[in-house]
Simulated scan of single mutants.
Amino acid sequence: MSVREIRLYGDPVLRTTCAEIDDIDDGIRALVDDLIETVRLPGRAGVAAPQIGVGLRAFSYNVDGRVGAILNPRVVEVRGEKTPTNEGCLSVPNLWHPTPRHPYARVEGIDVDGRDAVLEGEGLFAQMLQHETDHLDGVVYLHRLEKDERRIAMRQVRESDWF
């Protein structure tokens, strides 16, 4: 297990749709261990595999004492009107923008033992589920912003010291 370096916006892996995990072998188990170790650092709600350079459908989470990982997740249900929620991303450091998200989300996938897994929640947990699943589809939260807010965010990215 190790904490992995986070890939930053502009890295092509963040814009690539991730592949399904067909076989849960020692490599996948090691990936899950690294995702969980990486998300345990303070201030982290979720880490998707592409954020550590791996193009597979997996993410870890750490919200309100709930820590774990899910493989091959798909958002199967959302509820409520999208409302702008202050959101940031480890791959877009130090920038926070109001991002339209549903207040409830349900994700289905499998766990590291290949058993069916369901994650669902409201508030920050719902936001994390939508955010991390977006990563697996090659979508960074900046692309969910309203037009004017996205223009501001992209200018901030271009002017940042990490881009």
Results as ranks from 00 to 15, higher is better:
S91E: 06
H102C: 01
S2Y: 10
V63I: 12
N62P: 11
E122N: 12
Y61E: 07
T38Y: 09
D34E: 15
N86S: 13
V112W: 00
T38R: 05
V76M: 00
V107S: 04
L136D: 02
G27A: 09
G138N: 10
S91N: 01
V13Y: 08
D137Q: 00
S91A: 01
R4I: 00
E146M: 01
R150W: 00
Q127Y: 03
R144W: 11
T99S: 00
A58N: 00
L8Y: 15
T16M: 13
R150F: 05
V118I: 13
I70F: 03
I28V: 12
H143D: 13
D134Y: 00
T38L: 04
G55W: 04
N62M: 09
E5Q: 12
A69M: 13
D33H: 02
R158H: 00
T133W: 03
G27K: 13
V32A: 07
W96P: 08
H131D: 09
R150Q: 01
A105P: 06
D34S: 14
T38D: 10
R57A: 11
G46V: 03
R40W: 03
E120Q: 11
W96L: 01
D134C: 06
R40F: 07
T16P: 00
R155M: 11
P84L: 08
R15G: 02
M1R: 13
D11T: 08
V157N: 09
D137H: 01
D148G: 05
E87L: 06
V54L: 09
K82A: 08
G121A: 12
D22S: 15
D11A: 14
C89D: 13
Q51V: 02
A105H: 08
I6P: 02
H97K: 13
S160C: 08
V63K: 10
Y104K: 12
F163N: 14
I6M: 07
L56K: 14
I152M: 14
L124H: 06
F59G: 03
M128V: 14
P73W: 13
R150S: 04
L41Q: 15
F125L: 15
D116F: 01
E120M: 09
L35Q: 11
G88R: 03
V3D: 10
A126I: 07
R158Y: 04
P103N: 10
K147P: 11
I152H: 15
P73S: 12
I52G: 09
T38V: 01
H131G: 07
I70K: 03
R79K: 15
G43E: 02
D161N: 03
D11N: 13
H131A: 04
G65C: 12
G55L: 08
D33V: 08
D23K: 15
G68V: 02
S2E: 07
R74W: 04
R158I: 07
W96K: 04
T17R: 15
R155L: 13
Q127F: 10
V112D: 06
